[in-house]
Simulated assay, not measured.
Amino acid sequence: MKISNYLWAVLATATLSLTACGSDENENVIQSKEKTAKLELTLVGTPADSRATGTLPTTDESQINRLTVAVFTEASGNPVNALREFTGEDIEAASGTGKKITMLCEPGNGQMIYVVANASTGLFAGVTNLAGFKAKLMLLSETTKAAGADDATDIQKANNLPMLGSATGKNFTAGTKTEANIALSRLVARVSISSIKTAFDPVGRFKDATFKVDAIYLKNANSSVNADKAGSVLVHGGDGSTGTKKYLYATVSGHTANTELTTPYYFYTFPNASTSEPTKLIIKGTFDADGAGVVSTPIARYYPITINKKQANTTITGGAGTDKGSIAANTRYVLTAVIKGEGAPDDNTDIDPATLQLTITVADWVLTISQNVTFE
């Protein structure tokens, strides 16, 4: 079976040049709160396009629409040295152009720099120290805003993914140019499924069975995360009913029973290391035990796939530690599934892995993992 090509996005890189401004005659009398150091930020990225339905995104996953640069001193409590949010003309032409934006900082040693892309507007306003900065939560719902400029929608978009980069131990010395390279890394993972097909045993219990895919969605998706990549609010995809998120739910229309579904479906989610509530991709559909027969009635059945969990009838390819059932940031999880038996009555019930044959490929962005599952 041919799996869709993995399309790699080029991560944005922030290059920081710190140039102090001061004359020889006043260099020794700079006050601790004077903003006399110039921070010069150069963005390197790629052009972006909007998400196209039914295709996997490419370079748009590295688009920067809003940028917050925060500098903290090494003093007790790590107070803010400088903090500024850049939008609009400050960064609109930065991708691939080497455009520079600047801000003033206080000279000093052991400075920490954090760069956040595509967080919600004004998220870090009023922050006074590093702890306060890290307490702010970036929201998964931001991925539903086209280029970060529109109201939230019911569809995730590839061009407004939250990213983070940092550097520590930087010295800002008057009259000296200091450079620091900060690579921005996506805070989300991308979970996609590129193939779903049936393979009922021709001499088994369900030899005449049929299955038609009706929907694909995420369950236990982490909806918020801080600068330490930690978060705890789990949400579920749904058709808009109470407690569900439409943007994590895709209706599949027009699928013919027992034909392979090859249109890629994908979702973005934040890291989740929970062993009791792992992130799952759910295949929902209509199962008929005797197909065209008259004995059984078509019923709704679910095939839950625990992302990145090694189990029977599951093939996972990737780096070390990629089979513990956890979701990592900046990682692509590419799934394919073969259905061989009847699914579960709801999405809370795990099923015998023999019923679903699964292949998962996890890829970078930083890591690549593949997982194949077969449901017998």
Rank of each mutant, 00 (worst) to 15 (best):
G98K: 04
N372C: 14
K197I: 12
T46N: 14
D239K: 05
K2W: 08
K229T: 15
V127W: 03
L164R: 08
A354F: 11
V252T: 10
D201S: 14
G132V: 01
G126P: 02
N348V: 13
T242S: 10
A125C: 14
Y268D: 11
G96Y: 01
T58A: 10
P162R: 00
L16Q: 10
A320H: 10
S274W: 07
Y302K: 01
K35C: 11
D151E: 15
L67C: 01
A344K: 07
N258Q: 03
N372M: 14
N160S: 06
S370W: 06
E106C: 11
L234M: 02
L139K: 01
I193G: 09
S195G: 13
T359C: 15
D352S: 13
N159E: 06
F375G: 05
Y217G: 04
N159S: 02
G22M: 10
T259N: 11
D24W: 15
V116E: 00
G285P: 01
A149I: 13
S141I: 13
P278M: 09
T42C: 08
T331N: 02
I369F: 10
R66K: 01
T55C: 03
D208I: 01
A52C: 07
S76F: 01
S76P: 03
A174C: 12
A273Y: 07
Q63E: 09
G148P: 06
D290L: 14
E106M: 04
I283S: 00
K310M: 15
P47K: 08
I64H: 03
I101R: 12
L123F: 09
L11F: 07
A146P: 12
N222S: 09
D214E: 10
I327L: 02
S224R: 12
S241Q: 11
L281S: 02
I360T: 09
H236Q: 08
A93P: 04
L139A: 10
T349L: 12
E106R: 05
G22H: 15
T128G: 09
A14F: 08
A363T: 15
E34W: 09
K38M: 14
I369T: 14
R84F: 13
S296E: 13
V373C: 13
D352Q: 08
Y303Q: 03
T168W: 14
A329H: 09
E74T: 09
G318P: 03
L123V: 09
E142C: 01
A9Q: 08
P79V: 08
I196N: 03
D214M: 11
I351S: 04
T368Y: 12
K170W: 12
N118R: 01
L248T: 00
I3P: 06
A328P: 03
I193N: 07
L130Y: 11
G122V: 06
A199P: 05
T306E: 04
S241G: 12
T143H: 01
A257S: 11
L248R: 03
I305V: 07
A174V: 03
N5M: 03
K284D: 09
D151M: 12
V191A: 07
A312Q: 08
I327Y: 04
V203M: 11
